[in-house]
Design a protein around this nucleic acid. Structure first.
Lengths: 203, 203
DNA sequence: GTCTATAAACAGATAGAC
DNA sequence: GTCTATCTGTTTATAGAC
């Protein structure tokens, strides 16, 4: 269940992912997906029954292709600062390759939060690990204590929002696409620095 | 041009803003707006001609009701750290009152970036002021230099993303709506702290 | 100005030939 | 499996009565 068997199915699925992640469920058209796949509209229904089911598969695929990597890093026994750097670098790489993913996931989740429960909790992050690292580092005087919630949200924010706000940023700072790419690359260094500076204990 | 004259027009407009900001252009239905306004569908067209024009008015209204305040703070002659604190506090207050605004604006702008040029550049921010403050503070050894772009994006990110990711955050950390409100209130202190700690010069 | 009724266009889904 | 043709329901938009 949930696997891709035939060649055509694969082509359709990729087309659907492209259109859905760009336009969202409401903005996507079955016709556009068919065009993108170079096949007929009827085939979409032959392979995926209806728009909802096709979307569901796409949404799960997007989540599955990104979350586990990030959760893996979060749950690892890497030292705290390394974890922050690796998480940032990996997350930015993922979103650089798929700039629409962040906006897509957040938008669809506020449209229909139920899906979250399934797709997120299937591979839910274990915050205990990170929480203990923070407490330990705080007790040893290495960092200022910060609740896990805020640390995680701060990282997510600094990493994901620039992609969601890409047109705003490009407009506001008169950037072209190359400028924006460079800007994102700079953030691979800057974001971990920002996070670490904000919690590290001063002498 | 662009002003609201009659009572009914005002009621319709508020209903439209509510529905559009929640569902987005593609997800919004003229019927739902009519229902929300307690009037008939035909009246929407009588007052606003079509869906596109109604949406345009709403989008501009949302931008106009938020951006100028933030730009005003950015362009003021407030000291740098005060500016960071005031900007954060004001922005969070705006979004607390209208949690859908951030997701709405960013989503619609990536759907149709043209609108940005008009709505954003009408009251474009003057980054020179902030840029000079950063340079001055860096030269006087008060802070580590940071490009304006990154400083502004960092603030925007830490403030806006939590609202966009609200369902994710509530799911991930098992929060109820009250928990989330408290979480956001905490950020009014935490975000400026994070930003300032990340740039302030260590002894 | 506000309504009901209806037109016109669109989008998702199915039937049936090949 | 893949196509064309078509149906059904939805959604925007207009006509016209009051």
């Amino acid at each position: 269940m949930g696997s891709i068997d035939s060649k055509t199915e694969e082509i359709i699925f990729r087309a659907a992912r492209k259109v859905f992640t760009r336009k969202g469920f409401d903005g996507a058209r079955m016709q556009e997906i068919a065009d993108e796949a170079g096949i007929n509209k009827a085939l979409l229904h032959y392979y995926f029954r209806n728009k909802d089911k096709l979307f569901d598969r796409v949404f799960r695929d997007v989540v599955k292709s990104t979350l586990p990597q990030l959760i893996g890093i979060m749950n690892s026994d890497m030292p705290l600062f390394d974890k922050i750097r690796t998480f940032t670098s990996t997350y930015i790489d993922i979103l650089s390759g798929n700039p629409e993913f962040a906006g897509f996931v957040f938008h669809e989740l506020s449209r229909n939060p139920y899906r979250l429960l399934e797709s997120l909790k299937e591979s839910g992050p274990n915050l205990r690990v990170l929480e203990n690292q923070i407490k330990e580092a705080a007790l040893s005087g290495k960092i200022e204590y910060i609740p896990v919630t805020h640390l995680v949200v701060n990282m997510m924010s600094l990493i994901a929002l620039p992609f969601i706000a890409q047109p705003v940023i490009m407009g506001m700072f008169s950037m072209n696409p190359e400028d924006f790419d460079a800007f994102i690359r700079e953030r691979k260094e800057l974001v971990p620095q920002t996070i670490i500076h904000s919690i590290i204990k001063r002498p």
